[in-house]
């Protein structure tokens, strides 16, 4: 029996988001949605987190930060890209300073669409990520090697 499903701790990072999706992520914590009902906690520390939630497209300064945060998270871990910018780069994808979606830097497990993504969609995405987290946990338990840290190449 795995307890990841009962106690997912999130780390939320804003990689150049317009704050639309950020507000919706935080709205999940408010009395209306109250994700703590499911044991979901918004932690500010990568070393305590299981799920990395990223909003906004990735640009040159935030790329390093994303990699740093991801590599500091202990295994097993999953990445959720929230909003269309995080998924593909959105309307900013052709801008000279934007690299694109989160998957240009990290292996993304779940994409949550929307501009801004609705809290219901975010909760759905996190729940979907939990299934993947369980699979990864089971693989680690079965003796699979820890995935290597993601290097900083584009």
């Amino acid at each position: 029996m795995s307890f990841f499903k009962k106690s997912p701790w999130l780390l939320h990072y804003d990689a150049s988001s317009c704050n639309g999706c950020d507000i919706e992520v935080l709205a999940c914590l408010t009395p209306v949605y109250d994700v703590e009902r499911f044991g979901i906690v918004n932690t500010g520390n990568p070393k305590h987190a299981d799920i990395l939630v990223i909003t906004g497209s990735v640009n040159e300064p935030t790329r390093e930060v994303i990699l740093n945060l991801y590599n500091q998270m202990p295994h097993p871990k999953v990445v959720v890209a929230v909003g269309v910018c995080a998924a593909t780069g959105g309307i900013f994808r052709d801008t000279y300073n934007v690299l694109g979606g989160v998957d240009t830097v990290l292996p993304v497990d779940v994409y949550v669409p929307g501009c801004a993504a609705r809290p219901e969609a975010i909760i759905d995405g996190v729940v979907k990520a939990l299934g993947i987290l369980e699979t990864k946990a089971a693989a680690l338990k079965a003796g699979a090697a820890e995935p290597a840290a993601v290097e900083g190449s584009k």
Partner: peptide
Amino acid sequence: TARMQGRVGPPLFQPFYDVFKLFEKRGV
């Protein structure tokens, strides 16, 4: 705490779930 903030809050055994999960996590 959740009730004081107008929320429903986690199950009573949530702290145990958290600790059991942490035991399953790899440490750094």
